[in-house]
Amino acid sequence: MRLLRVELLRFRSRALIRWGAAGAVLIGLLFVFGAYQSSAPVPQAEIDAARADYDEAVADWEENGAEYTAECEEEEAAEKENDPTVDFGCEDGGPGEWSDWIGGTSSFSDVGLELVDVAGVVYLMVALVLGVTFSAAEMSTGAISSWLTFEPRRRRVYWSKLAAAAIGVLPIVAVALGVVVGGAWLAFTLNDAQGSMTTGAWAGLAWVLARTLLGAAAFAALGVALGVLTRSTAGALGLVFAWLVVVEMIFGTMEFFGGLKRFLLAVNTQAWVSGRATYYTETCVASDDRGIDCTYAEHVVPMTQGGLVLAVLVVVVCVTAAVTFRRRDIA
């Protein structure tokens, strides 16, 4: 406990951690600004312009609607000779409803959860970076050698750092999430766009927040382990960046690796934070007319799988770093 207390003191004393905390809050404010913009009432000038366009479309439809429908049905019939299932939707023509023309404004009940989902994933990355800098700085400056001359039990030293980072990021992420949720609610309220948040909706939001906090602790620990392994902030962040680009963005979009998509870090992180995530696979076969027929399938990754994959990743990396740190010579 003594070591943990000292590591927590070091965590909150680090300038980079403080800057990171400020950055997390700033990101939260950006989300709030976006929420305010999306829920702001449409200006009267835009409404007037839309009204003019709508009236013009109605008049045009009254005058030429029958002709447009006939043309549409004619083209549809011609196309049906090739593909009997085709449907041009000719009966749905016309200017539509006025509400379709003025563009909708979103409400908290519509987008609040989605907002927290996105912010949550961002904050997991912030926690990872804070964890990396926390341990890598000590390794790269050589301060760890001074530290070990005071506490030579490396296992204790390592786990205290891991625990300190995991605990230390919690208030930072909690405050940042509070800014997002509280700020977004305030922004929607100012625009009179709270919507109808049911008890169930609030509970769902609370679960997302709780899972994000738990995930942030795990990602901070993962960051500490990566910092210990690479002994360099740039090295650890470079490794993460390379993984995201090579594995998640390049291999992840290749259909050849379609079967492995369910294990992608991005998919499983989203599943853990949001409760579920979807990904798509494409299967193409040669058709009879020498073409290619492709079918697309949607796959759902449940929250439990997301949590399990992340837990395995964190445990494997943390234990590997622990063994490495215990056996490694310290310069």
Binding site: V6, R14, G142, S146, F150
Partner: peptide
């Protein structure tokens, strides 16, 4: 070898805390 961004006192406080 100490933490460059900490004060001398804070560096010693951390080490003192460890023991």
């Amino acid at each position: 070898k100490f933490f460059p961004s900490f004060t001398g006192r804070r560096n010693l406080e951390l080490l003192a805390g460890a023991i």
